[in-house]
Design a protein around this nucleic acid. Structure first.
Length: 348
DNA sequence: AAACCGGGGTT
DNA sequence: AACCCAGGTTT
């Protein structure tokens, strides 16, 4: 690529940002690293539109990192409910507690310390460093990859190691060293509002005259995409034990989907057989299950919900279930599929 | 390096 | 149905 284009890129972008960029978001321009961190964690792999109300709710409920650190964890997960990638929520809690107890509730102010926080990778560390502390670290998110890939017709893929390094190095070359926060915000805003994945608005783009993909009419070829793998099928058989007043749940653990969220007693199997069931249940006694499916990015969940009313809970002892009053399930955090089940079972 | 982790909007 | 979103951690 030409050096002239490298220097033109940033000045054209910053001029567009000053004169035309009217994108507004609740966290834009804020300097409080806690709030910036919160917004960035929420926005990981999440569209701005989807994350906004969660951000507003979290900041209103927990105005400071110490209030988040001292919050009831189930309440925090409950607020995160529906956002997905629940590891983000647990890491957020871990980091809030860490900063509150180990760092006098003071958010770290250098890149390496920020990067060391749980749930913070290179993108998020660069975002916090530049937005809160005006440090010159270039963000590389999906927007940046797309803009740079098109403007410089990068045939490197961000989804292999060398391509990733090349794109990060280019991004770092281009950043405005005096106003890194504004620059990072501007390139992401451009990607989100002009240089969109589909049907980019090239006629409004400040870079249209130096955009190599545009000049060679090959915008659709950039950026290089990641190959998609087929969905993994997950058949979940849920035994919904309940008495008139109580329902029985389990908290998911391990490194699997929905960690730390609650579901019903779950047996993952293609075909539910007698020996997979607890001793006191007979396959013939099971009613026809309610079947609900949910498509996720990487797997297809099919939930088979078997309602199992009980007179007493004595037979459940060995299953280590959590008993919850039916009137209190609104205090518990569930994945979407379980919420869908509740919506289909008002009589529970 | 590759696998894994949700949910949803847009086209 | 495909694409992809202000990515990060674990194996």
């Amino acid at each position: 690529m030409k050096n002239a284009d490298l220097s033109a890129f940033s000045s054209l972008l910053m001029a567009w940002n000053r004169n035309f960029n009217r994108r507004a978001m609740p966290w834009k321009g804020i300097k409080d690293p806690y709030k910036i961190w919160m917004s960035e964690i929420i926005l990981q792999q999440t569209r701005v539109d989807q994350g906004e109300k969660y951000y507003t709710d979290f900041i209103a409920s927990y105005p400071t990192i110490s209030q988040l650190a001292n919050a009831n964890e189930e309440d925090v997960f409950r607020k995160w409910q529906g956002l997905g990638y629940y590891n983000r929520c647990r890491n957020m809690i871990v980091t809030a507690k860490f900063i509150h107890t180990e760092n006098d509730a003071i958010f770290p102010d250098d890149y390496d310390s920020i990067l060391a926080l749980k749930g913070v990778g290179e993108y998020t560390a660069a975002a916090i460093s530049s937005f809160a502390f005006n440090l010159p670290y270039a963000v590389v998110d999906g927007n940046v990859v797309r803009v740079l890939s098109r403007v410089f017709s990068l045939h490197a893929s961000y989804f292999d190691a060398t391509g990733k390094k090349a794109i990060q190095a280019l991004a770092q070359t281009l950043i405005d060293k005096k106003e890194p926060g504004k620059y990072n915000q501007a390139i992401m805003d451009l990607g989100a509002t002009i240089c969109k994945p589909q049907q980019p608005d090239c006629s409004s783009c400040p870079l249209t005259l130096i955009c190599q993909a545009r000049l060679t009419d090959s915008i659709a070829s950039f950026p290089i995409k990641k190959e998609r793998k087929p969905l993994k099928e997950r058949p979940f058989h849920f035994l919904v034990f309940h008495t008139t007043s109580t329902i029985y749940l389990t908290k998911r653990s391990g490194n699997d989907i929905w960690k730390d969220l609650h579901t019903f007693y779950c047996i993952e199997t293609e075909k539910l057989t007698q020996k997979l069931l607890p001793d006191f249940i007979n396959t013939r006694e099971l009613n026809k299950p309610l079947v609900l499916t949910q498509i996720l990015s990487h797997q297809k969940i099919t939930g088979y919900f078997y309602l199992i009313p009980l007179q007493t809970a004595t037979s459940l002892k060995s299953l280590n279930l959590i008993s919850v009053k039916k009137t209190a399930i609104n205090k518990i955090a569930f994945p979407k599929l379980i919420l869908s089940f509740f919506e289909n079972n008002q009589y529970l």
